[in-house]
Amino acid sequence: MSPILEVKGLEASYGDLTVLRGISFEVEQGGVATLLGANGAGKTTTLRAICGMIRRKGEITYDGERIDRLSTEAIVRRGIAHVPEGRGTFTTLSVEENLQLGAMTRPMGKDISADIERCYHFFPRLKERRTQQAGTLSGGEQQMLAIARALMLRPRLMLLDEPSFGLAPMITKQIFDILADVKKEAGVSMLVVEQNASLALGIADHAYLIETGEIVMAGEAQTIRDDEGVRAAYLGY
């Protein structure tokens, strides 16, 4: 089966500063790939480039179609949901409104309320807080909301940017457990960017190591996990 996302020679820069120097990787249908790397390696930029939020060069093929010239809105309409760094919730809107916004590109109908219920099933905490302003939620709850909002799109591919950022280890584990469930139940493919390598390798099938804008290692998650160098540099044991 062909990969759902195929990136070839992706380049991006902010002004004079080149951040991505032609990276290539892919995400398999129904699979989870992870981009690992230190701060400033270009992980977030990669996700933003895929979504068309910054200028980019190179080939990005999603589901057999080139999307590297499309606008962000058009890319989202094709079923790619991006959970941005820092969660990007609509802070002054209610939790439920945030979820409704996730389904903005879908036709109106009953199945949207059904999906909201499904999100509440994954994240019962959100149900308790459905009328609350998103900005008043805790960090972990906001991350849950961001993921739930992404699910409302009924995406075929989810891009997750540092889902563990700033969260207590217990909450992080909870969130990754849910991601594993989502992968199993909904068959959503994922591209996860993480600094916490051991967490990401826990759910990933494939992993790519990125350093200063270049992929320096790629392979099965298991192989990467066992690699001596990676272990020393990223896993810390």
Partner: peptide, 23 residues
Amino acid sequence: TRVGLAMRAAAVNPESARLVGIR
């Protein structure tokens, strides 16, 4: 209305609004 909600979302957080497909 949906459009109303979308307009509010775009006002609060334009970047996230684009990420849910709002023009």
